[in-house]
Amino acid sequence: MKMIWHMVFLFAVAISAFAADVSYLGVKPAVIIDVRTPEEFAAGHLDGAVNIPYEQIGKGINTIPSLTKSSPILIYCRSGRRSAIAAQSLEQLGFQRVYDGGAMSDVQRKLQSCAAKTC
């Protein structure tokens, strides 16, 4: 039952939370994925981020509508270890534009708000 609830939660979040109007290293991500635990995510996350714990990234990525293998995906976690694992998993699944942001604090410093016509 817990797994079903979590998948429903992932689906609801995926539908409602696409990347905010930001760019990361000059690229506007189609989605920002926080690969920390749901508890860590609930304690605070980047605006517009979707929570898919790193050990569920292979299944969870399929809950995001309109995402293609060439969509830019930004991933982060607390320190960078889990985001690196998740990024490697996505690349092995054929995703071509995976950006491992590492630690959430690092991603926050590198995100830039998009002006009306810059992204």
Rank of each mutant, 00 (worst) to 15 (best):
Y76I: 11
Q92L: 15
L10I: 12
W5I: 01
M1R: 00
S79D: 07
K59V: 05
S71N: 07
S70T: 14
G102V: 05
P65T: 04
S71A: 12
S23L: 01
K117N: 09
R82S: 14
I85R: 08
D106C: 00
L111C: 03
K110S: 11
C119S: 01
N51Q: 10
V31F: 08
E55G: 02
V31I: 15
L10W: 06
A12D: 01
K69R: 13
L93N: 03
V13Y: 00
W5K: 02
H45D: 12
A86D: 13
R82M: 13
P53G: 10
A49N: 10
I32W: 05
Q112R: 14
K59D: 10
I75R: 06
S79R: 13
V22K: 11
G102M: 03
V27M: 05
I15V: 13
S66N: 12
M3D: 06
C77I: 12
V107E: 06
K117R: 02
A115R: 09
L67R: 03
C77N: 09
F9E: 07
E55S: 06
V27I: 15
M7F: 02
S105V: 14
G80T: 12
T63K: 04
N62T: 11
A87K: 14
Y99V: 09
E55I: 06
S113H: 04
A84P: 04
D100A: 08
M104T: 10
I64G: 02
Q92C: 06
T118P: 00
R36A: 07
P38V: 09
G44N: 08
V31Q: 10
I33L: 09
G102H: 04
Q92M: 15
R97M: 12
Q108Y: 05
F41A: 07
M7W: 03
F18N: 12
R36S: 11
N62A: 11
I73E: 11
R82L: 13
F9M: 04
S79N: 12
A17K: 15
R78W: 09
D100H: 06
Y54R: 01
N62F: 03
V35A: 09
H45A: 15
V107N: 07
G26Y: 12
F18E: 10
V35G: 05
S16K: 13
I52W: 01
N51E: 08
G60E: 08
S113E: 08
H45N: 15
F41N: 06
R97P: 02
P29A: 06
A103Y: 04
Q96M: 14
S23Y: 03
D21N: 15
